[in-house]
Nucleic acid binder design. Sequence first.
DNA 1: GTATAAACTAAGCCATGGCTAAATTTAAGA
DNA 2: TCTTAAATTTAGCCATGGCTTAGTTTATAC
Lengths: 150, 150
Amino acid sequence: MSVDPAKRTAERPLQEPDAQAEAFAVVRQAHQMETTEDYVELIDDLITSQGEARLVEVAERLGISQPSAGKTVARLQREGYVTSEPYRSIFLTEKGKKLADASRERHDVVYQFLLKIGVSDTTAKIDSEGLEHHVSEETLDAFRRIINAR
Amino acid sequence: MSVDPAKRTAERPLQEPDAQAEAFAVVRQAHQMETTEDYVELIDDLITSQGEARLVEVAERLGISQPSAGKTVARLQREGYVTSEPYRSIFLTEKGKKLADASRERHDVVYQFLLKIGVSDTTAKIDSEGLEHHVSEETLDAFRRIINAR
DNA sequence: GTATAAACTAAGCCATGGCTAAATTTAAGA
DNA sequence: TCTTAAATTTAGCCATGGCTTAGTTTATAC
Ligand SMILES: [Mn+2]
Ligand SMILES: [Mn+2]
Ligand SMILES: [Mn+2]
Ligand SMILES: [Mn+2]
């Protein structure tokens, strides 16, 4: 499956510097939103299934310490995605709920797509958690077409 | 394509906390390698196509400042992926070259896969730059099967 | 009601990877 | 050669998101 390096040079010439830089900029932008998306999606899931989102559970499900989760929740509050009073549970703002819904929808498409092409459930869950943040609308549409194909 | 929230709860119950935490841990691990992979791949491409990898070009193609690129190259040197003497160009170590080759191969599979499912070249280039770091071997194999399907 | 446990916050540490401004070194040109 | 431009380094700034340790508040249990 690997390719002769000499051949590769001819077959995959360098992109234009500007185009390449733009691609990296898009990735950096996606990373900047990634934590926010994962938190609001998780908080929304907890509210739906447990009635409330407690910091202790957010931290447990992210696999990080409570203070780390708390610091990010504080940032999300600063940025208007969530609200919470000291020692109370976490709520989504309108803005946060909207982002949560969009993120879950996109996450689900990626997950279902992986299952459709024969990836195991465990791997689909793991891979979709990372992939979801780097899928454009155009690629998402291609995924949807394949999901809906018989 | 979106789903009734009430239904979703039934259809997509929360994962086990441990499994979910493990997925996030895998993503964090991937992010930790991401910069390293992009740099060695780019440095290798520059050496192949231009004869050498200069910091100025690495920075330009990443779309970041020269000092930022220089700082990361210094880390890569500390970690044994590259060598370079002051004011000279950048070389890959054995370890760096190996990682570059593996990264390019994986990147190419993702790129070719996107093209195969009907994504435009421009979008395939952009999306593959982010997606490449979050694709497991199992998913990569599924991608290869589709690439090779007639 | 009070003691204890659980949850949360506060404080302060670290690495990564962005940035700008200002030196320094190397390369190029007249 | 000598001047100047380009490339690189140095220094120091910032935000994010990890961590631990220690204090505070709330909830639980008796
Ligand atoms: Mn998600
Ligand atoms: Mn995710
Ligand atoms: Mn990449
Ligand atoms: Mn990523």
